[in-house]
Design a protein around this nucleic acid. Structure first.
Lengths: 231, 231
DNA sequence: CCGGATCCCCAGGGATACTG
DNA sequence: CAGTATCCCTGGGGATCCGG
């Protein structure tokens, strides 16, 4: 990316990760761990191969990712985040939290992947009843599957199926994710195709981070910049 | 921006603010409050006028900014952030914090503005001794001036001059900001041209957020995505 | 099949000039 | 002051092709 030429940490950060696709590549590596070229391509539907290869080179030059040769059984090169790259997680969290507000809009032909189904509840919900016994929720959306495990105040997720879930949510992505992240209520979710089976009351245990008091969205009273004099 | 076509809140957020210059426009409005076209242009050195006008139209369409007609004494239109736009602050904070690591590199011909000098200590430092009496630090860098006011556990800043500062820091931007944000130590800062006059011990009271334990950079033990199965 | 490289085309960005 | 208009050119999208 052409540099903005501004001595400001936001501008300098964007000099490095402001290019199109760059933050989404970091998202993939953050959510899935070290990936092969093809894994990345599959997790980034719409990216051109030359662009991906170019970005990987740039990211390696900036030391945000590293290239490791996998041992014999795999025998291919894996791309993984370096420490600097991993530290972009707060940026992606903040961006993803802010982006929740757009998840209610219906855009039928968007791509969808299981690990996107998994990270959203892990990042944007909390266990509202830490003392309660562990519970397992199965998610199914657009053919992709993920599992939520709530317990000990944590919300953990993984892709795939659970052996014996306490609750199963099945429906279009925006019904499943919309309900979990709080942009749609349960009535609205069922109206747009959500199927709920099992212990419904578990839903009240998952507290969406969006719009909740005291979370990252809430700004603190001190707002330094706004007070900046006009010279 | 062309949509990424992915049903993921990060991708959808980038559909809206991922375009070149867009987040920097939001930065300006966040730091300075409602601005005129010319103020924005001045705070965004390097942007082309047509591009700025186009972005403002897009941001207005996305309801991140609003256009208000200022009362007679000004008699011009002001651009200001809406609630949705203001809520991008955590994103810019995270990005700016991550970008601090690049602030040590010397790029002599970068542009610099007083309000960038002001926001960095306000966002990225804390009062290490909340019980101590209030103090005022004058910053001067590349002809731009800002003031830090520490007191009651808060770090507030504004552009301009202070009447009677307890400490004055003067030097190239990367010496002043590098020292305050912790990417350079005081010895290194003086080597690259920092002049310190007044009560030096005040510097120990400003604790940089970067690399400090328990701050936003530190990832929590649960790392959901990394555990995602490979299908 | 994996990991790219090459080519062509076009939209979006940069610089400058101009106008209400 | 607040933009618009124009031109040029880079960088991204899409397809195809190639070596391992």
């Amino acid at each position: 990316m052409r540099s903005y030429g501004q001595y400001c940490s936001i501008a300098r950060a964007l000099d490095v990760v402001g290019d199109r696709w760059t933050l989404l590549i970091v998202r993939e590596l953050l959510l899935r761990g070290p990936c092969r070229f093809t894994d990345l391509r599959n997790g980034l539907p719409g990216i051109a191969a030359n662009l991906l290869s170019g970005r990987l080179r740039e990211l390696e030059a900036a030391a945000l990712i590293g290239r490791e040769d996998a041992p014999p059984p795999v025998a291919t090169t894996l791309y993984g985040l370096t420490e600097d790259g991993l530290e972009l997680e707060p940026v992606l969290r903040a961006l993803g939290l802010w982006g929740l507000r757009f998840m209610a809009a219906d855009r039928p032909d968007e791509a969808f992947r299981a690990h996107w189904l998994a990270y959203a509840p892990a990042w944007f919900t909390a266990d509202a009843d830490p003392g309660a016994p562990p519970a397992v929720i199965q998610l199914v959306a657009a053919g992709e599957q993920a599992v939520i495990e709530i317990g000990e105040g944590r919300v953990r997720t993984r892709t795939g199926r659970a052996a014996d879930p306490d609750l199963t949510l099945d429906g279009p992505p925006r019904a499943v994710l919309g309900l979990l992240t709080g942009v749609v209520d349960i009535g609205g979710a069922e109206e747009i195709g959500l199927t709920v089976s099992g212990r419904r009351e578990l839903l009240t245990r998952l507290r969406p981070a969006a719009e909740a008091p005291g979370d990252a969205v809430t700004r603190e009273p001190s707002d330094p910049g706004r007070r900046a004099a006009r010279t």
